[in-house]
Design a protein around this nucleic acid. Structure first.
Lengths: 347, 347
DNA sequence: TTGTAAGCGTTATCAT
DNA sequence: ATGATAACGCTTACAA
């Protein structure tokens, strides 16, 4: 509790020890290049004076910073919380600082933040999705640091990619409902960002393949997804089409809302109505009935993204630039199949 | 799609226009000090060349940056998502950049991040709570920028504060359950961070005042709160004490879990068991039955924190350094009172 | 209104 | 192994 007075700088430490500034700098960054006695005296003085390097000066003088820039579209959405958890976990103890940017699903904000970030000469960049604007792509290509696009898969990564095929996952979820015997399977979608849209594509395909497609079964909105919205969208779906017997919801909040609404309407889940969510948030397992969902490995995704970045920063060769983390249908009672057992046979 | 080539700097723009670097700098920061014709030519050149200022150089040369540093304990917790939404909303269009730090409920990480942040000469700082370590407080006092502590209230703000009294809120929630006629009111707590602990204090006081206190009714854990955990804690509570007839949960996830568990055990809510949550997440209103909760104005809190910062940055005098945003018991069916109607009278 | 000169605190480069 | 010197790109202070 003595230190922390004025602003101690490199030269102050150097002066105190009786060496030059650059020597202090070396002790901090490449201690192996400094002789033991000098190093010890410098380390002591740094601690005693409470010296902390100025990141701005550091950034200005060198080509790179220790910043890992992360761009996500929402800080509210559970999905990204999990990814962030993985990121923070993995970066713990490493000499990097996470800088989080919230694009709020806005292309313009993404461009702006990318401008801000890339001017900072980050050590690495993580961005969400693969639908960057042309301008954003240009900024990324110029950034001259490793970049990981997360959440999705694609043939043309800017640099590296880790995620899953939302289209396939949507397809699989829909197939699952079909296989359990549901025949009039609705779709509830909110926000309708690129990943949501791909899930819808997967749904549409599966429905067409099964000869079950019907546009009236699709209810979407640009609004942000909430549990309450799940109730509303389900109501809308039911009013549009009286024989719906299941829904695939683009996320678990909507699915939970759909369940709540079913309960209020005394629609029996899964007997009269099947519900499948997406993401497999922890709450799905404890709802009544437990809700089927599609597990996406979000925390792992964050971890892998960081690993890919640091490997590249360390100059290690990357095996696969695009990593598929897959998904898994976590089957629970909410999609056990309709009461009419004749439909239970696999299609 | 022409620009964005090399690294354009101030002198490049200056040269292109035929003025000095400082003039370009002025056009960017204090355009009113530059004559119209020069300004227009500079603006044009900036746009044409795609010039973006280097934040490191800017930070090094000047006393302040445009960074507003925000320190929150969790990026996973709904509570902070809402605060962040308020923050981002309010800051939109202003010449500031949000820099988010995740302390993960760790005092050491908070100290580290505060060190990192304050070295950047931020324009303002928002930190969570009032229980900073001595070292963190020292860093804050040194930071030489406006600071808002959010989430709580207290007599000795480092600078400014906006929040609510968690103790009072916990007290009020407990009183509410008592007034509705519940007599064996349990407490479910997770994480047990300072705010949670204060809610527990409020609960304890209210219970003592009513002569209802019983340590066995209190179930807490250091684990992070989840819906699943709510189920587990409720089970634990029920196994400890067979006559519990209500719970106050320190947040809504636990409350939802408690409800799910009650449903599974065929415990009728609210007839046999009352449930009150905390934060009033949107899902509370659509559960079955709808769940009573304590509304905290989290989005407003984020907005106000930013407003307080920018007012101070602009040199405006602050009316009140500590702003109480209050709370409100949002009464829903889950606490309508036990079946035994004689207990319904207000205590 | 515009410009000149001198840093801001660090690191890169080249010497010693 | 250590140091001198010159950047890094911008702003401050002062001058014109």
């Amino acid at each position: 509790m003595v230190e922390l007075k004025k602003k101690i700088k490199l030269t102050d430490v150097a002066e105190a020890v009786g060496v030059s500034a650059i020597t202090v700098s070396r002790v901090l960054r490449t201690p192996e290049l400094v002789s033991e006695p000098v190093r010890l005296r410098v380390v002591e003085a740094v601690a005693r004076l409470g010296y902390v390097p100025d990141p701005a000066a550091r950034a200005l003088a060198s080509a790179r910073t220790d910043v890992l820039g992360i761009l996500i579209p929402s800080v509210t959405n559970n999905v990204f919380s999990a990814v962030l958890r993985g990121i923070y976990d993995r970066v713990e103890g490493l000499p990097f600082n996470i800088q989080l940017g919230n694009t709020r699903y806005s292309v313009l904000e993404e461009e702006r933040l990318l401008g801000v970030f890339s001017r900072q000469r980050p050590a690495g960049l993580i961005v969400t999705g693969r639908d960057q604007s042309a301008r954003s792509l240009a900024l990324l290509r110029q950034a001259d640091c490793p970049i990981v696009q997360i959440m999705e898969l694609g043939d043309e990564p800017v640099d590296m990619m880790v995620g899953l095929s939302h289209r396939d996952a949507g397809h699989a979820a829909t197939r699952h409902l079909q296989e359990r015997g549901y025949r009039r399977i609705g779709f509830l979608g909110a926000r309708m960002d690129p990943r949501t849209q791909r899930r819808l594509e997967g749904y549409g395909e599966a429905q067409k393949e099964a000869g079950l497609h019907d546009e009236r079964l699709i209810v979407t909105t640009r609004r942000a997804s909430t549990v309450t919205l799940g109730c509303e969208l389900l109501s809308e779906l039911l009013s549009r089409s009286h024989d719906v017997d299941a829904v695939f919801c683009i996320n678990d909040d909507l699915a939970l809302g759909a369940l709540f609404e079913c309960q209020r309407r005394r629609i029996a889940v899964p007997d009269d109505f099947g519900i499948c969510g997406f993401n497999d948030l922890e709450m799905m397992a404890v709802a009544n009935p437990p809700l089927t969902s599609v597990r996406t490995n979000r925390e792992e995704m964050g971890r892998r993204a960081i690993e890919m970045l640091i490997a590249r920063i360390a100059g290690e060769p990357i095996e696969a630039p695009v990593v598929d983390l897959g998904y898994e249908i976590v089957e629970r009672r909410s999609t056990a199949g309709p009461r009419r057992r004749e439909a239970l046979l696999p299609t």
